[in-house]
């Protein structure tokens, strides 16, 4: 463990890969280290008595994985799923897997550290709570989401 960590940090210090997806026309990014796989929308089994943004559970090769609607999480109205709707399966350090439902997956871009800047502390920005940092790309400014908060905060 001790050996592998510095290596990771070095990697993160220079470049990190970011997966971008869009929700309601806005593009968000998440660090690729959390992403396990991307699958199409599957049959979701409803689990009663849980918060609305958790849509239920899906079966990924025998594993029961909860899925979260990012739209619902951001307070945006949900739209019917189509063939571009995807579930990004995230895996956290403790091994827990959680799927997030996004409108569509865009691309993976290598982002260097210099392109990442911190978020302003303004509380007024919508869903600022889930945003970790801001990425300045040639194609424009993108928001990087904090996976831990996105999934685990109440």
């Amino acid at each position: 463990m001790e050996n592998s960590e510095p290596a990771n940090k070095n990697y993160a210090a220079d470049d990190s890969e970011v997966l971008f997806f869009s929700i309601d026309g806005t593009i968000y990014g998440i660090e690729i280290k959390y992403v396990n796989e991307i699958i199409g929308i599957e049959q979701i089994t409803v689990v009663p008595k849980i918060p609305e943004h958790i849509k239920g559970v899906i079966n990924i090769r025998g594993k029961v994985v909860p899925v979260i609607s990012v739209r619902k999480r951001f307070g945006i109205e949900e739209i019917p799923y189509d063939d571009r709707t995807c579930i990004i399966v995230l895996e956290f350090e403790d091994g827990e897997q959680v799927g997030i439902i996004v409108d569509r997956v865009r691309e993976v871009i290598v982002v260097s550290r210099s392109e990442i800047s911190k978020t302003p502390d303004a509380k007024s920005v919508n869903s600022n709570h889930y945003i970790k940092s801001i990425v300045n790309l040639e194609s424009g400014v993108r928001l990087l989401l904090d996976c831990e908060k996105l999934v685990r905060d109440n």
Partner: peptide
């Protein structure tokens, strides 16, 4: 999963889940 356990699914009468023959 721990994410769901946070919301007291057990107290609400759900002991766990299982996968059926058809994958559901």
């Amino acid at each position: 999963s721990p994410l769901l356990n946070k919301y007291n699914v057990k107290q609400n009468g759900m002991a766990g889940c299982s996968i059926l023959g058809d994958g559901s």
